[in-house]
Amino acid sequence: MTASLDVTIYHNPACGTSRNTLALIRNTRIEPTVIEYLVTPPSREKLIQLIADAGLSVRDAIRKNVDPYRDLALEREDWSDKELINFMLEHPILINRPFVVTALGTRLSRPSEVVLDILPLPQKGAFIKEDGEQVIDENGQRVN
């Protein structure tokens, strides 16, 4: 039985990590479903599922270096998971990214190479991240 080639990325084209993750997916010659989550945020149920399936806490799935995080004082430990989810839905920029979903699992792909663990096909050639770091060699093998 072969793994499904369905891959979905919750993407922000303004984010280098998200662009690198998308490029790593495409380096397998898979064209994923791309959801620009700032334009089309996930539903409450989908967001909760993404976080749980990735094995994260709600707090782990929040971006901390954006204005809404500081403005809402989200560093306080007394916010409940439900309240944090509400903030993420109200301000999708708070959702850390990119989440990637495949038949092999769900990951928050930070750093972008995390996506390699759940891709159903191997890399098809060399890959160099935007910052110049080589991640995949010319034989499609991960560079350590």
Rank of each mutant, 00 (worst) to 15 (best):
L121F: 06
V100I: 08
R107T: 09
S112H: 14
S112V: 14
D81K: 01
L108P: 01
H91W: 13
V100D: 06
P120W: 04
N86E: 15
I93W: 00
P111Y: 10
V101M: 06
D117P: 07
I95Y: 08
S109D: 13
H91C: 02
L94N: 00
S80V: 00
R110K: 12
H91Y: 15
I93R: 02
T102L: 05
A103T: 14
E83T: 11
P111W: 11
F87T: 04
D81Q: 01
A103D: 15
P122K: 11
D81G: 00
K124E: 15
L116G: 10
E90W: 06
L121T: 05
T102H: 05
W79S: 00
F99G: 03
D78I: 11
S80N: 01
P111E: 10
E77G: 07
D117H: 11
E77P: 02
L108N: 00
Q123C: 13
E90N: 08
I95P: 08
R107D: 04
T102I: 05
P92M: 04
T102M: 03
L121W: 03
L104I: 00
N86H: 11
R76P: 05
I95V: 15
L121Q: 11
N96H: 12
V100K: 08
R76E: 11
T106L: 12
K124Y: 05
P111F: 09
I93P: 02
D117S: 14
L84W: 05
R76N: 13
R97N: 05
D81F: 01
Q123A: 10
S109R: 08
L94Y: 03
L116D: 11
T102W: 04
